[in-house]
Computed example of a mutant assay.
Amino acid sequence: MVPNKPDPPSTPFWNVNVPPSQHTETCPGFLTYAIDTNPRDRAILSTPDSDYIRQSWPQVQQLVRENRPDLFQRVPSDLRLYKEYCAKLVEEYGSVMRFVVEERLGWGDEGVDGEVEGGLGDPVVFDEANYKILQNDWPYGIDSRIVHLVVWTKFTLLTNPATEDLTPEAHAEIERFVDETFVAKCGREKVVWFRNWTSLKSIQAVEHFHVMLFDPDAKVVREVTRGDVAFAEQVKKGYGLGG
């Protein structure tokens, strides 16, 4: 009788999607949060990229309609790289927010503490000097034809503190801006936008909302972002990962 073979040792989640030569016996500091406090991220990080299924455009539209931004997630290897670089940015800049404000937005302190005069009902709020559209530096694990942009603003997007939802006035103003800036160029069925719940926002002090475009004309994306390139693409090239 042949004894049952023992199950092969499982790969620790922090070594999944990492070349064997780079495996470590202990969890890197930038991933220890996933051991006890974030089982969702631990499950994602434990998934080989080859098993990950990207969310489709209909799924993206549904999540936005249902106001479930918490159900978006990143490709496992992208999540790992995101956490690693966030840790490096904190070391160099003091916070990820400071990096975004100084390097990505070029706003200095005004993008952190300053607010323009007026409210979202004021038609001059979405003036070119008061917002910037950039590629999402670390986009979600969605259909690769979807372009994920972030609209950063120097003014507050008013919300209901009890629900974290935008006020009707703020929602209407953003909707108007999105229609003029994106829908008019891409078509209504190819555009969605949302604002993360406060508890989900990785950059708390700089106001922003997300826009996703399905298979847009590359020229349109270059125009609205002024040729911006996601930071993740620069990082991947530095690692020799393409992008």
Rank of each mutant, 00 (worst) to 15 (best):
A184L: 11
L166H: 01
V192F: 01
A205E: 13
A205Q: 15
T198W: 10
V192L: 03
E207R: 12
A170T: 13
K185T: 12
F177C: 01
C186H: 08
K185A: 14
E173S: 13
A170L: 01
I174Q: 00
G187N: 08
P168F: 04
V206P: 05
R188F: 09
T181A: 02
A172C: 09
K190S: 13
W193V: 02
V192I: 10
K201H: 08
W193F: 12
R195E: 06
W197H: 13
G187T: 10
F194D: 07
F177P: 00
T181M: 04
I203R: 00
A184F: 10
V178A: 06
R176Q: 14
T181W: 01
K190Q: 12
E175V: 02
I203D: 04
V192H: 01
L200F: 12
K201S: 09
A205D: 15
I203Q: 07
E189K: 14
T181R: 04
C186R: 08
V191M: 09
Q204V: 13
R176H: 12
T198R: 13
K201Q: 14
E169L: 09
A172F: 06
C186I: 12
C186D: 04
V192E: 02
D179N: 15
T198D: 14
L200R: 08
R188H: 13
K185W: 07
F194R: 08
H208P: 01
L166R: 00
A172E: 12
R195T: 06
H171S: 06
I203K: 03
E189C: 10
I174W: 01
E169D: 11
D165I: 06
S202H: 06
N196H: 10
A170Y: 01
V192C: 03
V192Q: 02
N196P: 08
K185L: 13
W193N: 05
R195H: 06
A170C: 12
N196R: 03
S199N: 11
V178P: 01
W197R: 10
R176F: 07
E175Q: 12
F194G: 07
S199F: 15
F182H: 05
R188I: 14
W197G: 03
E180M: 11
S199H: 11
V206S: 04
Q204A: 15
K185Q: 15
R195V: 02
V192S: 02
L200I: 08
G187W: 11
K190L: 05
V178D: 01
W197Y: 13
S202M: 07
P168C: 04
R176D: 12
T198C: 12
L166F: 00
E180A: 12
V192W: 00
E189M: 07
A172K: 09
E207V: 10
